[in-house]
Design a protein around this nucleic acid. Sequence first.
RNA 1: GGAGACGUGGCAGAGUGGUCGAAUGCGGCGGUCUUGAAAACCGUUGUACCGCGAGGUACCGGGGGUUCGAAUCCCUCCGUCUCCGCCA
Length: 424
Amino acid sequence: MLTIATIRQERDQLVEDYKRRNLDVSELLDQIVALDESRRATQKDLDALLAKSNEISKKIGELFKSGKHEEGNALRQESASDKDIIAALKEQMNANENSITQLLYQIPNRPHSSVPQGKSDEDNVEMDRFGTIPELHEGAQAHWDLASKYQLIDFELGVKITGAGFPLYRGKGARLQRALINFFLDEARDAGYEEFIPPHLVNEASGIGTGQLPDKEGQMYHSAADDLYLIPTAEVPLTNIFRDVIVRKEDFPIKLCGYTPCFRREAGSYGKDVRGLNRLHQFDKVEIVQIQHPEMSYSTLDQMVAHVQGLLKKLELPYRTLRLCGGDLGFAAALTIDLEVYSAAQERWLEVSSISNFESYQANRLKCRFKNKEGKSELVHSLNGSALALPRILAALLENNQFDGGIRIPEVLVPYCGFDTIEE
RNA sequence: GGAGACGUGGCAGAGUGGUCGAAUGCGGCGGUCUUGAAAACCGUUGUACCGCGAGGUACCGGGGGUUCGAAUCCCUCCGUCUCCGCCA
């Protein structure tokens, strides 16, 4: 979230910047500034009273020590008289701070200056394309048909066991999943990311730390009995490693990766968007995360994008790179680059990776800092990206590599899955 | 799940109602000495908020309470350890 200092110093520029998110934050910001003024005035009064009361208490102690009980008792009365005022001021301080926090929670991240104006995904700006879109043979099928034809995924059984959006992978379909996970993890490790296996359920504090909570509870599965949330992405547990941590600047960049299943309620989705593997409640993903020095975070973002593009190249998938517009930008992100692969049978682009720089937005919630050159605490920058989400990759692999009577496995995956074609 | 013990600064560890933001040791940083280093010695070393500043305030796992005054007493939650039970 934004810091109060930023809001106080850059109020007008902020109002301008949020227009690219189609948001008018002027009123919110003014409210926050007003609350902060009042908070500081209250603290001044409170601190003065506390100082007085501390002094009296000290005096009472000395008086009783030296046997002057009557004088001590007299002072007691005096001290007691301020108690109510102190309690009231404390309450006001707390109420004030809570109000400020609640307002800050409502404000998404400030978009980076390079974020294009726009309302929806249609306004995202295409930056480049790579690869050639394959010509499919006559009678080529979409991945959901291929999945059932070659017995790779059983969507109906998933429905029986759990419900829609929970596919059951089987046989070569399951092995292909495992192959992709291992391939992605190996590539991340080769790029210097340390591998983690984090918890798949997180507490409320973690959800707040990365920006999934509050106000967005409906997007995560929640276990009420234990008040835990199923992770929507490994970003949440991996980034929360750094909650309340002061990192050493020599450790920059800190690079982490991890495979986890991801759980998303996806309320309100429908139609062709949810067909087959296009949108699921449970899916697998390898995530990469970096904690970086503020001055380095945008070059790091470029490196992360290049890493994921490299994966798509190795998988021989045609892709395009998009810069998300303000209207499509996620809540906590300052800048997001999306990668989409072309799904040749569906004849559409599918988003397979989102790589974002959160700047200090998450760091401020996490209280993740480092000591800068002046020796002062400064918020770090956090970044993450999918590298990669499996279902749509699988969809594109199946569709793009199908031939009459089978599906070819890209060379790079063959050692991982142990077969080079899927046939009937 | 049951019984008990415990949770203090980067780490170890003292502190059971006032003189405690907190002894001591280790570690870190700066210095003296040295060609350099080690050792020794001296100094320094938590975070946040308010204030132009002097300075003030808060924080001893979290929250609440008792008291003029709480690291210290009480309640509650969380966590760790030991023993028992259950179990992959």
